[in-house]
């Protein structure tokens, strides 16, 4: 009996199952993924290549081919000399406008939303959830319906056309998603911690600054990424709520590229486009997985 089972055990497969790295399944899988990635990378490649060519080479050559002669002239021109209307000081003006719009908007919107999320979880009061529901529904409503009433509100406050008006608008429209983000995060912090702090005599702001804030740095980084890219990429609010002198980079880029007068300088256009996309791209590549977490937050059910 014992011998029989031993011998039959030895004749069958034994040891590790053989693995094949190049199975047809894997070739298919990686093949498809690589082709897809080429589609995604193509525009970036074209942008970089075009921006490094001189105009004669752009006209003669193939947009996919690397430059024969690398020139940084288009970048210089896009940054400092490109014209929008009568202004010919390049994208740099838009860049700095975007910086001074983005920085306070990001700070203000995150400050407000984090306090909202904290109050909604730990300091519920009558009706607080109703306001939150309105906020979430509001985030799905087309901005267009609120465009003009906000014009009136800003005009009443004397902020229409100013940078601070735009900062306020960004804070308002960033509020739903950020509040949701912070609310969900704070709800994962054990409630007993909050209770312990109350027994220890800490109040609303004491608990926020001393307990919640130090525990929530990751979610603040996520919010930062979300807001920097979101506000930097905004076009509509920039057009509607600011004067041409304060136009953010996206608006100025569009005006440069799509202006009808003059000869089209495609290499300068691509350099300008790249320059505008650079800030969010840098944020994206540096932040890695946190960016994914940020965008997925919008899909997380509240």
């Amino acid at each position: 009996m014992a011998d029989l089972s031993m011998s039959s055990a030895m004749t069958g497969p034994r040891g590790a199952r053989p693995k094949r790295a190049l199975s047809p399944r894997n070739i298919m899988l990686y093949g498809i993924l690589i082709v897809v990635c080429l589609y995604y990378l193509l525009p970036l490649w074209v942008m970089v290549m075009t921006s490094l060519k001189g105009m004669p080479e752009v006209r003669m050559g193939n947009i996919f081919a690397p430059p024969v002669e690398i020139t940084f002239q288009p970048w210089v021109k896009a940054w400092a000399e490109a014209c929008t209307g009568l202004n010919c000081d390049g994208l740099s003006r838009g860049f700095w406008n975007s910086v001074i719009i983005t920085v306070p908007s990001v700070i203000l919107s995150i400050a407000i939303a984090s306090v909202n999320g904290y109050a909604l979880i730990n300091w519920k009061f009558k009706g607080s959830d109703i306001f939150f529901t309105i906020l979430i529904f509001g985030s799905f409503i087309p901005y267009q319906i609120m465009l003009y009433p906000i014009v009136i509100l800003l005009r009443e406050m004397g902020l229409y056309g100013s940078l601070w008006g735009l900062v306020l608008v960004h804070s308002v429209f960033g509020m739903p998603i950020l509040t949701l983000l912070f609310r969900n995060y704070f709800s994962s912090i054990p409630e007993e911690l909050f209770k312990a702090a109350r027994v220890d005599g800490a109040g609303f702001w004491g608990i926020y600054f001393r307990i919640m804030l130090p525990m929530s740095l990751p979610i603040f980084v996520v919010a930062l990424i979300l807001q920097v890219t979101g506000i930097w990429n905004d076009f509509l609010f920039g057009v509607v709520y600011t004067k041409p002198a304060y136009y953010p980079m996206t608006v100025q880029l569009n005006n440069i590229v799509n202006s009808v007068q003059g000869v089209k300088e495609y290499n300068v256009n691509m350099a300008a486009t790249l320059l505008t996309g650079l800030v969010p791209l840098v944020v994206y590549f540096v932040s890695g997985k946190l960016f994914v977490r940020g965008i997925a937050a919008g899909a997380v059910k509240g």
Binding site: I63, N233, T250, V251, N254, M270, T276, P280, L281, V283
Partner: peptide, 17 residues
């Protein structure tokens, strides 16, 4: 990565391609 870019940048690149 394209999702990090604005529609303006997206539109202009593809307009060129």
């Amino acid at each position: 990565y394209p999702f990090a870019l604005s529609f303006i940048v997206t539109g202009l690149v593809w307009q060129w391609i």
